[in-house]
């Protein structure tokens, strides 16, 4: 059992200024849970509370059903991977991996077995005698992962582990992490501000903002049915188009709806004079910008409801000055005055 449960967890560094508001979450055993949010949303603090490096000011953390109230970080059977790797600079890769095992009083032959297995798994065999400063960023990252894996913890906590790597390496390690999670089947808790990482790796995504969990769902669900305007605007590149309900009122709207959202790829661009297909809502406007991104292009259209961004795949470039944006009714998302999603 290694489910992680947060019960009404609060954290405030200064009285009256909570970083985390009464948060209750359950992170599934064996899941790849990603805590996603902008900087300052409390995601790293939450991870540190789970690790025991920061103490919660209220509520309780349960790992495998047991309260962690009086359990020290080293006794929580978790391993953490830090943003800056936190490798011990004076030790070789091998010593870095072995340090924790020695402290845990694991016998020598068992240590040997674990280290050789994990170093093979991560392709580190050739670098075991190197010190961190002799290793590249990607290799350091793998050593940091290996150091966590050899401990055979109940859960891995990762604090933006890829943010120090260049884009190419990041994509590669992202794939390796998915593979690793499949192989180990251990609970992963992963903190990031990068939605690509969250969407591509997570089995579930928890979107955090202002110390509150806005939505906890699978990546597909978070993308397709954002729980509120914040999630809608935070996820997706470019984010969901949001327009005021009045702009489309002539088409008939859901009750209580104040805002309407639709994904850029759901926005169809048509010639200004074209007749719209049935079951669509449409907005007219002038083209403000065109961005060609290879397999698709982004077209910004200035309408009376504000700027709309549409994604257009392949096809010929859209060269008209004026355009019509049409969206199928079933692709519209409705939000009430507080920004909460309305399911229709």
């Amino acid at each position: 059992m290694s489910e992680i449960e947060l019960r009404n967890v609060c954290k405030e560094y200064k009285k009256g200024y909570p970083i985390i508001h009464e948060m209750s979450l359950t992170l599934k055993e064996g899941g790849f849970s990603v805590l996603l949010g902008p900087s300052g949303c409390g995601k790293s603090t939450l991870l540190r509370i789970i690790a025991g490096l920061d103490r919660e000011t209220g509520g309780d953390v349960l790992i495998g059903g047991k309260s962690m109230k009086n359990v020290l970080p080293q006794d929580r059977e978790i391993a953490m991977v830090f943003q800056n790797y936190a490798l011990y600079p004076s030790m070789t890769a091998r010593e870095n991996m072995e340090f924790g095992l020695k402290n845990m009083k694991i016998p020598k032959n068992e240590r040997e077995i674990r280290i050789s297995r994990i170093s093979k798994m991560l392709g580190l065999e050739g670098h075991m005698k190197s010190k961190p400063h002799q290793l590249s960023g990607g290799q350091c990252q793998r050593v940091a992962l290996a150091r966590a894996i050899v401990k055979e913890p109940k859960a891995f906590l990762m604090d933006e582990p890829l943010s120090n790597l260049d884009a190419k390496l990041r994509a590669q390690i992202r794939r390796e992490l998915i593979e690793l999670h499949n192989k180990l089947g251990t609970t992963f808790v992963y903190v990031t501000h990068d939605q690509v990482e969250a969407m591509s790796m997570g089995s579930e995504v928890i979107v955090l903002e202002g110390g509150k969990a806005r939505q906890q769902a699978s990546p597909d669900e978070v993308y397709a049915n954002p729980a509120d305007l914040f999630v809608a605007k935070f996820i997706g590149a470019p984010p969901m188009n949001i327009v005021d309900v009045s702009a489309l009122s002539k088409f008939g709207v859901a009750p209580k709806a104040e805002f309407i959202g639709f994904r850029p790829e759901k926005a169809m661009i048509m010639d200004f004079s074209a007749t719209c297909p049935d079951g669509c809502v449409f907005l007219a406007g002038s083209v403000a910008a065109r961005e060609n991104l290879g397999d698709h292009s982004l077209i910004s259209i200035n309408t009376k409801a504000g700027m709309i961004i549409a994604k257009r795949f392949g096809e010929r470039a859209f060269s008209e000055e004026k355009a019509m944006v049409a969206v199928k009714r079933e692709d519209l998302k409705w939000f009430d005055e507080e920004g909460k999603s309305i399911r229709t």
Binding site: P73, Q74, A79, F82, N84, A86, S90, N103
Partner: peptide
């Protein structure tokens, strides 16, 4: 870097070992 001390802590190192094995070098 504080994360180095935290890593040692999570690696079950005693304060004594953290001081001489991690901080001292």
């Amino acid at each position: 870097p504080p994360s180095l001390i935290e890593a040692a802590r999570l690696d079950s190192a005693s304060h004594w070992r953290t001081l001489w094995k991690v901080v001292y070098p």
